[in-house]
Design a binder for these strands. Structure first.
Length: 125
RNA sequence: UCAGUCGGCCGGACGGCCGCUCCGGCAAGCACCGAAAGGUCGUCGGAGAGGAAAGUCCGGGCUCCAUUGACAUGCGGUGCCGGAUAACAUCCGGCGGGGGCAACCCUAGGGAAAGUGCCACAGAGAACGAACCGCCCGCCCUGCGGCGCAAGCUGCGAGGGCGAGUAAGGGUGAAAAGGUGCGGUAAGAGCGCACCGCGGUUCCGGCAACGGAACCGGCAUGGUAAACCCCACCGGGAGCAAGACCGAAUAGGGACGGUUACGCGGGCAGUUCGCGGAAUGCGACAACGCCCGCGGGAGCGAUGUCAGGCUCGCCGUCCGGGUAGGUUGCAGGAGGUCGCGCGCAAGCGCGAUCCCAGAGGAAUGGCCGUCACGUAUCGUGCCGCGCGACCGGCGCGGUGCCCUACAGAACCCGGCUUACAGGCCGGCUGAUGCU
């Protein structure tokens, strides 16, 4: 996956306004005006714990993003769940991400992405 | 067997599926991102967190800046001795002091006769040596007793007063001016003596810290230096966000060219310079900049003219600095392992062998399975004492829980400190039992 690495990119996504909260993380999204693949960044601030715990949160979030395309339930159209190209996403980790069930978090991410899609569709008619 | 003490080590294992980062080989289109610098994408093989990676408390390497050298002063640090080391506040081996039956542990351990300060409370007294209660002596008064007819004489483990002696005892304190004992004395006192302590000298042992012995001195020097201070030794500053290279967009700077398109005057500034003992004094200077004024010019309002206003250069090419960003520094090192030698040891030397993380919004992971370990509980077998109950120990089986503590490299090393579930190994000491 393409990663966001520069501070300016993170600020751009944060200022876009499209965001969805779940128990374990917050998702922010921003549409770019180019033809590149989706890019994603992770933010886990210091208030979430020690360096070891923050590492673990980021790794589980990263694994979520990697798995999002793999196994889509049959009852939902797969292209609706995936990360969209020419979009930037930022996942902000929270402390429950340390211990929350992995499959539950995967469902969380799917519904969040779905809601983000509808938000951005509403925002730019 | 129990209790203790010291040292060392490990810090889940194996497997499956799907991934991440780096290195090396091969292959490489000119595809993708970017204005550029540069980065991304394939395949095969290999490697990929710790004992503390942590705190950032010391010591170095490395980098840049500063620096003629030496001395002095200031500031900071270190502080028994010897050794190890690149260096250290570290380590090793000793010494002194303190604690423990012992193994062993603790120790910021120079100087208090250079000077200054402080020593609360209690207590009479806390430092140019004190005298409260006492003890003792002398004198006087009172009291009591004896002798005497009386005046008086005389005695007293009695009371009081005055004067002198004393520091043994009591009491206060963290500490009371050497300690204990004997002698001595009116009572006492290093006043004398013995031992201990202290100080000095000499000798012996030791590289040294220091230890031992002999002799001398009657005792002089209270404590506090993590109070100031004194002495000895050490120390430039900042850090990989160091530093090096590449380098936009935008704004701003310079040069040249084009365009008629700027010129002049004054003021301001300041770790500046000169004069001066000095001033807020006098004088000088100024690239760039800021302000004011004068003259000229250009542009702007639908257009022309006049008056007034506003703005002040524009275009092109090149150059330099520098920001975002990129690359590098950045993984072969005071390196690991093994062997031999030297050393009590810390460690050192020689030889062989190995290459062992390198991210950058930060790789080393996610989801599972099996097993081990631990723990709880249930069932069952054996042992204890002949049996039963209870209890304890051991074994087997089932189930549940934890399915693992502290914790994540960030330029690199040597240390220190702090955190840590559970476990393993070894040395030593004490007590007890058996032979």
């Amino acid at each position: 996956m393409e990663r966001l690495r520069q501070r300016a990119d993170f600020l751009a996504v944060a200022n876009n306004g499209a965001r969805v909260n779940t128990a374990a993380f917050t998702v922010q999204a921003r549409r770019r005006d180019d033809q590149g693949p989706p890019r994603i960044g992770f933010t886990v601030s210091k208030k979430n714990g020690t360096a070891t715990e923050r590492n673990r949160i980021r790794r589980r979030l990263r694994e979520l993003v990697r798995r999002i395309d793999d196994v889509a339930p049959d009852d939902i159209a797969p292209n609706k769940m995936a990360l969209r190209p020419h979009n930037d996403y930022v996942l902000i980790g929270r402390r429950p991400a340390l211990s929350r069930d992995f499959k539950t978090m995967l469902d969380d991410l799917r519904t969040s992405l779905d809601r983000l899609d509808r938000q951005t569709a509403k925002a730019r008619p």
